[in-house]
């Protein structure tokens, strides 16, 4: 089929239609379709092996689609790959800068490849590059994990791309650096950069304008985090006792149909049928717990993802 140059929605930063990719018998992407708007902060949320990296490699023109189409700013990833590479920034999951160049040499190198000027675009990277500027003369290979990540992001942005792809930028990164990175990502949309970022951390989904939940190559949902939470259709309570590890088993005894999961210092119980807080509390007291708190709660994005994953599994099997 001959690709056409027209797009029916010229505003889309990304338009993916029925995209499929197989590796032998493994289906990495199974006919997915979605759009990303310009200047949007778009999250691709899902576990390892869900298809995130394959999708990134196709969108950045590094891998050909099996079937279906993908366009970035109206450019086809197969036929217009040269032009796509000029307007994107890509930060792969694995650190891929030159370890034996210094921090500032790496930055200058990436700018020169794109014919960009470091000073002219410095405003875009200042919020993160300022953290590593004191180490400008240090070799990239000698930086800590968090600093490497900041340098990689600076290098991916220094040519002021229209769209920035980040594949799991926060995996293995501590909670402080994660927070800083996300502050930075949120500042890019207003400066005219569309951001597509993947992560296995569910809490980071809340920081995106919209998210796509990807599992086993299929889209579980695409929406704003608020809408995904609003679509949660089960009853949900949070339980806290002095011994949550034991309470986990007791709550599963109470009703095998309950979905009982640990959530930090709480246990979340979801169910098709209404959950009476008083009944749960009485049950736990009866089992000898002294400190029992039971609250109705609004689901987190992680509750929603777990729910959608389980639905998908039932659907498949």
């Amino acid at each position: 089929m001959k690709p056409t140059a027209t797009t029916n929605q010229p505003d889309a930063a990304i338009a993916v239609e029925n995209l499929t990719k197989r590796y032998g018998d493994t289906v990495a992407l199974d006919g997915i379709s979605f759009r990303v708007q310009r200047n949007e902060l778009f999250g691709i949320i899902g576990p390892d092996g869900g298809g995130k990296t394959t999708l990134f490699r196709i969108l950045t023109s590094l891998l050909r689609p099996g079937s279906g189409r993908a366009r970035t700013y109206g450019l086809d990833v197969v036929t217009d790959y040269k032009r796509i590479r000029q307007i994107i920034g890509y930060m792969p999951g694995r650190f891929s800068l030159y370890q034996d160049l210094t921090v500032e040499e790496n930055l200058a190198f990436f700018a020169s490849i794109f014919g960009a000027d470091v000073n002219q675009n410095y405003d875009l990277i200042a919020p993160i590059y300022d953290h590593i500027k004191p180490f400008a003369k240090r070799r990239a290979g000698d930086l800590s994990g968090g600093m490497k990540q900041k340098l990689a992001l600076s290098c991916a942005l220094i040519h002021r791309p229209k769209i920035l792809f980040l594949d799991e930028p926060t995996t293995g990164i501590d909670a402080v650096s994660r927070t800083e990175l996300w502050q930075m990502l949120r500042s890019l949309g207003p400066k005219g950069v569309t951001v597509v970022v993947s992560t296995p951390y569910m809490d980071e989904a809340l920081l995106c304008d919209r998210v796509l939940l990807l599992q086993d190559g299929r889209i579980l949902d695409t929406d704003t985090p608020e809408a995904i939470i609003a679509h949660f259709d089960k009853h949900l309570i949070a339980v806290e006792t002095e011994d949550n590890k034991r309470a986990l088993r007791d709550l599963r005894d109470l009703d095998p149909a309950f979905n009982v999961q640990t959530f930090g210092y709480e246990i979340h119980v979801s169910s098709e049928r209404a959950l009476e807080r008083a009944d749960i509390e009485k049950f736990l007291r009866g089992r000898g717990y002294r400190r029992v708190r039971v609250d109705d709660i609004v689901p987190t994005i992680e509750d929603c993802f777990i729910e959608l994953m389980q639905k998908e599994k039932e659907h498949v099997s």
């Binding site: 576990p47 390892d48 995996t171 296995p200 590890k245 999961q261 640990t262 992680e302 777990i306």
Partner: peptide, 16 residues
């Protein structure tokens, strides 16, 4: 690291 939210919880129950 990188494990889905259900498996992550199953893993912790194995730790328990």
């Amino acid at each position: 690291g990188g494990v889905d939210p259900i498996t992550r919880r199953q893993f912790w129950e194995m730790i328990f």
